[in-house]
Every structure is written in C-alpha cells, then in structure tokens.
Write a protein that binds this DNA or RNA. Sequence first.
DNA 1: TTAATTCCTATCGTTTTAGTTGGTTTTCTG
DNA 2: CAGAAAACCAACTAAAACGATAGGAATTAA
Lengths: 150, 150
Amino acid sequence: MKLSTKGRYGLKAMFDLAVNYGEGPIPLKSIADRQNISEHYLEQLMMILRKAGLVKSVRGAQGGYMLARKPAEITVGDVLRVLEGPIGLVDCVLEQDPLECDKAENCIMRIVWEKIRDSMVAAMDSITLQDMCDEAEKRKAESQNYMYYI
Amino acid sequence: MKLSTKGRYGLKAMFDLAVNYGEGPIPLKSIADRQNISEHYLEQLMMILRKAGLVKSVRGAQGGYMLARKPAEITVGDVLRVLEGPIGLVDCVLEQDPLECDKAENCIMRIVWEKIRDSMVAAMDSITLQDMCDEAEKRKAESQNYMYYI
DNA sequence: TTAATTCCTATCGTTTTAGTTGGTTTTCTG
DNA sequence: CAGAAAACCAACTAAAACGATAGGAATTAA
C-alpha cells in the first residue's frame, strides 16, 4: 500500500519548485541536492511531470524547471495521479479506466474499495502546494531555529 | 499505491467467513473455490490471520476456519493491517513503528502523508464485516437475480 | 566556444510478489 | 482401524516492479 519513490520524490520536488515559485527556472541539480535525490532519477520524474503539464522547462545554461501553474492551482492529488497513476487501492475502482470486472454490479468488496479511494482522493485534492508553502512559512515564523525541511 | 493480493484475497476470504458465520468451520477449499483463489496461497494468508487472532481453525476432517469474533467486531482496517502492515503511504507516518526521520519535527511533507493516512484509516475502520453482510442482504432483497458476489 | 543544462534511450541489480511443490500432522467417519 | 479430509509448515521459483545507473544528444546563456 506504499507509495513508490516516484510519488515521494516527485512531490518533494514539486514543493521545492513551489517554494521557489516566481524565481525563474530552477536547475534540477539544485533540487536533487537539496532533497538528496539522484539527479538522473529525478530527471525521469520531471520528464513525466512536464509531459503531464505540471511543470515547464527551460533548456540550456541557466535553464531549469518551474511550475506550470500557481502553487495554489496544483494539488497533491494532481502530482500523485501523474506519478503513481489513477488513485485507488485496487484496479477495479481506479478513478480512470478501472479494470472491468464481471461482478462489478453487485460486488460488495467494491463498495469498500470505493469508500477508501474516495477518502484518499478527498484528502489529496484538499491540499495545494500553496497550502504546504503557507504551513512552512507559519512554522518558520513560530520558531527561531526552524529550517526549511523540504 | 496498490494493495497486494494479500489484502484483496484476505478480505474476500474474511467476508466469505462472515457470510457463513455461525455455521461451524468452513474448509479452505470451499472458500478458495468460491473466490477463485489458489488454495495453497490462501492457506498462507489464513495462517497470518490466525496468528493475528482474527480467525480460528479446526484441524482434521470436517475442519476449517471461522471468524474469531463476531462480524460486527472485525473491521476492514483490522484485516488490512494484519495482511498489509501498518496503514500509511510512506514509512515515516505508519501507524505503528514509523520509520524515524531526522527532519520529523518540521517536515512539511509529513503533514500531507498524515492527513492522507488519517483519511484512509477512518474509512477502513468505519466498515465492519457485518456492514458488508448487511449490504449484501440488502442488495439480495432488492434484486431478483442478485447473486452473492463475494 | 564552452559550460550548463535539459532531453532521451537503454540497461541492470535487487527486492517483492504471487504463487507452487511437497510434504507432515490432526481428526472425523465408515 | 483405515482412509480421507483437512489444517499446518517449509522451501523454492518465475515474473514483475523498483530504484536507480550509464552514456550520450540537443539546446542555450555567457
């Protein structure tokens, strides 16, 4: 039931971009260094995020990545859907293209999986990258020795 | 983010036992046949469930498995915790023995994972095997050609 | 021109998954 | 008592997923 590193690293990177939103393209290397992630591996994740339209890239020297939309317009669910696939603990209740099942109409198990999926979706979609930035700012203000743990 | 077959098969089997609750020990073979699961594989899952105290077994001919408690006293969360491990999408926010992380105090990611975990836990713990049986009965009553799809 | 940086494809070792195999032990029934 | 039914148990295995790594090609600012 665990998330893969795609989802974990990817959301970390997106949060990093959100914190640095409006400061031009952020090079992958700096994100990878801050987050302690293999640069090459993170590259693959950014590719996925770019193709999904969540980040924009600028090639060449002084290039890098930036969010394609404002942090307030990107939810945790948006990021996780792209990197982990449609939300759902079992294939027959995925948000998109659920795997067909001959018993679908009257399957009691299905009700359970749908309820869990809906609660996950609600939680994921309720948190934006902006919310995360706000929380970071709040904690920073509350504590002298707070550091950006992103 | 998917459940493994342990969780899926295991909950199916537990629901099967709940439907047949009070009818003495149910042989594994009959569960495996109804649910279309490898008998030997299901055996391993039942072993885990037995050691966790969710089912009781009776050995020898006419033996089998039965729920250790009433269906109303076993939640979906109980079953999934035993078969899939503590609930949580990432190791640092598992319900039990979360993986320590040096940044724990001020980690913004953590807030996200906790919120998702809590919503999953709430959904899982809110559904009992009895609820599932009730729903099956309800559907049965509503439709002539309803069949027990368990 | 050169250094920085994204883009792209392929490969690879390890771990997990989802079983299978081949038994042993217990207990009911005829 | 014999035989069948059933749980119990340990070891093995093929395939898939995971988490990278390798090696370059293309682009662009300075």
